[in-house]
Design a protein around this nucleic acid. Structure first.
Lengths: 342, 342
DNA sequence: TTGAAAGCGCTAACAT
DNA sequence: ATGTTAGCGCTTTCAA
């Protein structure tokens, strides 16, 4: 291990000068120092540096599920903003678990200058643990109980769910089912509320048996769809509240040999990579992904730059729009609801 | 910021005792210490700890592309192995760039006890930078020039490509195209070689115009497919060498209104999430993903546990099997190759 | 601009 | 089993 002292000795200066050179200051012996660094293949010790300076030059990103392409896209947006900046970005996953999230946050609070967090649940108190650690946090996609404590970037979940409901209603559907996510997550709660409200506005009350919860997982969507489609009479349309669950629904539909949209209409929150290439192509609620991540990162960088004078800052909350992408997985109800075979 | 000294004072012991308590040793005043820790909400400073002990209790994972579901699955496998261990796992992306990978490795070498790396290119010398840093590295999916320097977990790329070629040959295809990846990556090189060799064994030389390169990206696969399918006579079958490029091919095929497998057969290396649900379902070469990651992690943990007595260890190299999943995207050539319309 | 020196918070000898 | 103490490698006063 070669240290700054080795470099200083070889260059014939003090460690302070080397340190200053490294920090980009003007230094007389900068040529000698540079050469010494190269010759010794010197790499500053990040731990020593951080311990002394209090800064780590890294920011942590915490997502509930690494395998969800939606989060991957958000992370991509984050990374692209940081490309040539001084910060390194590290990603950690929590597997949708509040306990694991706790561990990860405690760990990261000591290793990063700032955090971008997609909370596992709204109750998972990033607040307590993080607020005392004093490092800036930006929430993405999901919020925490104490909304006002952190900057956040979210989408209009309720509006998107309403768009989906209204699309179905316009096509004449009445026996409509929803496969939602956990109600203790922001998207789970808001999409459910938006959907139910929109139906209610049309005078339709969703059958409790049609109100499924799929934990935002492929398997959950699959099981829920199996239940929904196994019942008589089944729903004429299903709204699945995230990408992974939609994949589960598609599996179920495929397995059961049910024709879409003839026998059942499908609409989803979030597009799929292959959404447009399916038969039929998937009708869905689309939203920005990379842009959401990029925005969050900019918000975080702003916090990182502002002087820490202890004065509390007002939290920024950005809500992004979503839109309906009509493709081929929804059709008008062909027969009076009561008389359809399924 | 509360330090170990604060805890020691409150508990009426020395900092050493607190440190020992934290390390899990038997300590007389452990009750008082525990209480003091809670009362002060004490969190050990990770930087100080690492600086002093030389260990970070974290391992870094470096992948070329965060948005590729294949890598996400590998990472999932890695994480699952670490679940209750003492190590925290951090993920970084390199965007398939050797320069970015260099930066990331330099950074991570100082922040992690071990690394799991999927190299951007075989020439991207993790060797030089990492070998002097003395931290254990396990390579996954792709290898580096100096193979013997690191443990690695890979799949039988050449064998898989051969499987694909032979499947096509059995169906009578002769005008066969391939969309490969960069030849300076292990999978790019090996899959290309395996495919070309298998064709050669059947006495078929691939038309140079049918030997495309799609950079393992969706867009690359899309553009390559467009070129391939725009030519007359076009190939009767296309082998795309990874998941992302397959998506690109599917887009192109869909856009051009070409029927699969009637007009062109498609076979891919790597399955897609929705591979079985496409119309027609995708015929592909399947391979373990999470298992690959899990194995790599176990290899790394083994290295981390072995005493660092400076004695060089023999590198382990694990090659996992792949298999052919026949679904519906390949069909026999219906007419003599020379007379088909495309 | 430069160097000397203090010390960030912790762990690991060492001595007891 | 416990306390004392040195020091990990670096940055940042402070004086010159």
């Amino acid at each position: 291990m070669t240290t700054i002292a080795d470099v200083a000795r070889l260059a014939g200066v003090s460690t302070a000068s080397v340190s200053r050179y490294l920090a980009g200051h003007r230094v007389r012996e900068h040529v000698a120092i540079e050469q010494a660094c190269n010759e010794l293949r010197y790499r500053p010790n990040a731990m020593a540096r951080s311990l002394r300076s209090g800064r780590t030059r890294s920011i942590g990103v915490v997502v509930p599920d690494i395998t969800n392409p939606y989060y991957a896209a958000v992370v991509k947006g984050i990374q692209d903003v940081t490309l040539d900046g001084p910060y390194h970005v590290f990603l950690s996953g929590t597997d949708e678990s509040a306990e694991r999230q706790h561990d990860v946050l405690v760990e990261l609070a000591g290793r990063a200058d700032g955090l971008i967090l997609i909370p596992a649940t709204e109750q998972s108190e990033p607040s307590r643990e993080l607020q005392q650690s004093r490092i800036p946090v930006v929430l993405v996609d999901r919020e925490a109980e104490d909304v006002h404590a952190f900057d956040s970037v979210v989408v209009d979940n309720a509006g998107g769910a309403r768009l989906a409901a209204e699309h179905l209603l316009e096509l004449g559907h009445e026996r409509i089912a929803m496969i939602g996510g956990p109600l203790n997550t922001t998207p789970g709660r808001e999409r459910h509320a938006g959907f139910v409200d929109a139906l209610a506005d049309a005078g339709i009350v969703m059958d409790p048996a049609h109100d499924e919860e799929g934990r935002f997982k492929t398997e959950g969507g699959y099981q829920a769809a199996l239940r929904l489609l196994g019942a008589r009479p089944g729903p004429t349309a299903i709204f699945s509240a995230n990408n992974l669950m939609t994949i589960g629904v598609l599996r179920a539909v495929n397995e059961l040999g049910i024709r879409v949209p003839d026998e059942v209409s499908l609409i989803a929150f979030d597009d799929l990579d292959l959404g447009a290439l399916l038969t039929p192509p998937l009708t869905c609620i689309s939203r920005p992904t990379e842009a959401q991540g990029a925005l969050a990162m900019r918000l975080l960088l702003r916090r990182l730059e502002e002087p820490d004078d202890g004065a509390p800052r007002e939290a920024t909350r950005i809500v992004m729009d979503v839109s309906l992408t009509v493709r081929g997985s929804c059709a008008p109800v062909s027969a009076p609801a009561g008389k359809r075979r399924r």
